[in-house]
């Protein structure tokens, strides 16, 4: 299977010589096209930093990141923006929807930035809204939506541009368990029916159990990796809990 994302010996330091934080300490991993990968770790373990580096929002201190064969650590300026809007989709914990725009307009904006015509925008949004079951809330403003609805609109915005890879940072972090479950099922469906590649950061074992592979990191290093294989979600969940126990303590509490 094709390697869509390759992270090679990435390091990320914060601060100066006297007060150095190694947020990421020599991480290498790869994600294949069509995979649904979760990254787990306690708060402060460097999950967001890693995701931001992959997302080109942050820069690595050393190492390389290849997406679709292109080394993104060497991209600059408008090439970087171009790459970001054409190849990547983002979903954030706090939704990051624009409050002054309706759900439809929020999704459309991601397409408009790519110079896609209004007609085509409409077709694409209608299609994705159907898949995610948000047709009824498209005309609402974010303040008129529940958290789960907001996150589904944000997911639609991330997916609608047909990105190579969708990056999600704690997407269920601000949701109640019912909405979390619905969102994760949506991710599963996107992954299975549309073949979207998803890289999700989470500290929640339940969320991670929806992925096909889980990578655990601790103190900026990869600690372990779990493949779901043909296991049921329940079995996979139990396996994840085992690793967490091994990691030392409950991740939820660490937050």
């Amino acid at each position: 299977m094709k390697k869509l994302l390759q992270v090679k010996h990435v390091e990320k330091y914060y601060g100066n010589k006297n007060n150095l934080t190694k947020a990421i300490d020599d991480i290498s991993l790869s994600v294949n096209s069509g995979e649904f990968v979760a990254i787990m770790g306690a708060s402060g373990s460097g999950k967001t930093t890693l995701l931001n580096c992959i997302a080109t929002i942050d820069r690595v201190t050393s190492g390389n990141i290849l997406i679709d064969g292109e080394d993104i650590t060497t991209l600059k300026g408008n090439n970087l923006n171009k790459f970001r809007r054409e190849k990547l989709g983002f979903i954030f914990q706090d939704f990051n929807l624009l409050n002054t725009l309706t759900g439809y307009e929020n999704i459309a904006l991601a397409l408009a930035i790519q110079n896609i015509s209004a007609k085509e925008q409409n077709d694409k949004i209608k299609a994705i809204a159907k898949t995610l079951g948000i047709e009824k809330i498209l005309d609402r403003y974010p303040y008129q939506m529940s958290g789960g609805e907001k996150q589904r609109v944000a997911s639609a915005r991330a997916i609608v541009t047909n990105p190579k890879i969708v990056l999600a940072d704690e997407p269920t972090g601000a949701l109640d368990s019912k909405s979390s479950k619905a969102l994760l099922e949506t991710f599963e469906r996107l992954n299975q029916t549309l073949g979207s590649t998803i890289l999700m950061v989470t500290h929640d074992a339940f969320a991670a159990s929806y992925a096909s592979r889980v990578i655990f990191i601790k103190d900026g290093k990869i600690f372990s990796e779990l493949n779901r294989g043909d296991d049921s979600r329940k079995t996979f969940f139990d396996n994840i809990i085992d690793v967490i126990t091994l990691l030392g303590g409950n991740l939820n509490d660490a937050c």
């Binding site: 624009l98 002054t100 725009l101 307009e105 459309a108 904006l109 397409l111 408009a112 930035i113 110079n115 015509s117 209004a118 007609k119 925008q121 409409n122």
Partner: peptide, 16 residues
């Protein structure tokens, strides 16, 4: 005017 409104950041600009 969907064609103007849906171009680039126009929807955002006008709403703001």
């Amino acid at each position: 005017c969907k064609n103007i409104y849906g171009r680039k950041l126009n929807s955002f600009t006008f709403k703001q």
